[in-house]
Each structure stands twice: as C-alpha cells, then as structure tokens.
Design a protein around this nucleic acid. Sequence first.
DNA 1: GGTGAAAGACGCACATG
DNA 2: CATGTGCGTCTTTCACC
Lengths: 153, 153
Amino acid sequence: MDAIDRKLIDILQEDASLSYSVLGTKVGLSVSAVNDRVRKLREQGIIQAYKIAVDTNAIGRSLTAMVWLRTDPAKGNKKLVKSLIKADEVLECHHMTGRFDFLVKLRLRDTAHLESFVSDTIKEMPGVVEVLPEIALSTAKETMFVPAQLETD
Amino acid sequence: MDAIDRKLIDILQEDASLSYSVLGTKVGLSVSAVNDRVRKLREQGIIQAYKIAVDTNAIGRSLTAMVWLRTDPAKGNKKLVKSLIKADEVLECHHMTGRFDFLVKLRLRDTAHLESFVSDTIKEMPGVVEVLPEIALSTAKETMFVPAQLETD
DNA sequence: GGTGAAAGACGCACATG
DNA sequence: CATGTGCGTCTTTCACC
C-alpha cells in the first residue's frame, strides 16, 4: 500500500460514489490503474464494504445513549457480549478499562425506548451487576473516517 | 417513505455496491422503480452519502479510546467543540448528561499517540478542566447501521 | 507497475400502458 | 408501477509497454 492507495482510501471514505475516471483524475492515474488498485484493496480486505450514511432522524432513531456496564467477575462475559451485539439498538460495544467493564452505545427512538431497553433487556442480560446510562444532549461529530494518509506531524 | 423504501435503506446500509437490478429482485420491483426510489431518497437527504468501511488495523489506527471531559461552566463550549471536531483523531464528540460534559471517542495509532493527544492537544483546548481517558481493550461491535424497517415489538 | 482500446453491464431518462 | 428503448457512462478485461 503506497501513497496513492492511501489517497484513494481517503477519497472513497468521504464519497464512494465517485467513478474510476474521477478518481483517476484526482490521483493522476488512468481508469484501469485505479480499477486495479481498488480491486486489490477490496481483495486484501482493506476496503471492507460499501455503505450508505443514513439520516437517523428520518428513520426515527435520533436518541443516542451511552451505557456503562459493570459485570460479575465470576462469570465470563461471552454470553453478555453475544446478547449485546445481537440487539440492533446497540451500535457499539467496547470492553473498557476503568471502573466499568463495558461501554455500550445505543441508538433509540426516544426516552421510552431507552427506558424499556435498559430495564427490560440490558438488566436481564447474564452477568450484569450495574448499569449507568447517560444521554447525548447533542452530537457535534460522528464519523468512521480514519485518515489513511500518513500525517506530517 | 413506505415499507419498500425502508427495506432498500436497510439493504444499502449493509451493501451499497449492489446494482439496481439486484435490489429490484430483493424488494420485488423493476429496475426503474428502484432507480426512482433511491434517487428520491438521495434527494430527500435520507440517504446522505456513499462511504466505504475500512480496516483501521491496516492503516495503523487500531487503538480506540473514550475521553471524558469536564468543562468550565463560565466559558461557553463553542470554541472547545470547534477544536475537537477539527482533529482527525476525534471520531465522535457528544455533549452528555451526567458528571462529565463531553464524551469524545478517539482513534489513535498507539498509546504514545493517545498520551500526546491527551496531554498536548486536549488539555490545551479552551475551557477543559478535567480529562478522563479510558481505553477500549476490545470492540465487539462498531457499526452505524440503524434499522429503517419498522420493528415488530 | 502503468496505458489504451474494446466489450459488456449499468445508470438514467423518457415514452407507453 | 412495469415494460421498452436509447444513449451515455462506467466497469472490466486484455494486449501491450
């Protein structure tokens, strides 16, 4: 992976609908060279998938909550994690350092949805001993973009 | 937006590289009908953009950290938020309820990168009075997928 | 590694029912 | 909304450098 591959990745992270000819103009290569490079990046798994970004407001899931979990150290966490990642309300599940064991990011319809999901679903999951939900009042940034371009710092 | 639009959104969230003819087969519509619907969803801003998912491991940014910030209530938070979202290390920035004011999600090269970003960058930002970084030991799920399909619960 | 050309598939618009 | 057509663009492959 060289500098041109990295540039292609950064461009496609922002807009994956660009054609190979436009990409070629941007990186100074021919259409077929761009095609080659993108295909190889896909084959290597560096480009994992093509996705769309959706207006979550329009589909009625605009409440973001972060839930801290403390778990029973006697039990393993495998069953808990399996239950968590199965739920479509759970966007992220991280095993964390610090006083709590897990940080779970939720996307929900409203506070009623949060209440029922925390009370009826999370608290019933195996090994959960403490639950601390917090609500996002606003979100100034939310992206998956990670620069492939090597920084100059 | 009807049930078919919602289904199209869910399919495209998982794989936006599918052709209109494949989409048509999946939802039981003709190519031109699918074309119409997807174009309208884009025009309405419900489909916001096309993106790629990247293997962050391959591009050398595999450390995830969550940083809690407490800010000076005397100052506004505008300048701070502006500084935060400018940094490419910052993937997410949420204004939160609870003891802290902000939760910031970072993607970094390694712990040295975390140390320098927290010490040299975040702590120097206007209005920051307390910084509590925590590291993700592992991440079991990390997605932006939000079901547009109306659930049956 | 790259280019350029050719073939086929796809996107897109339009007209008809 | 389905089907047809037409056309431009894009993808993909392949011979060549």
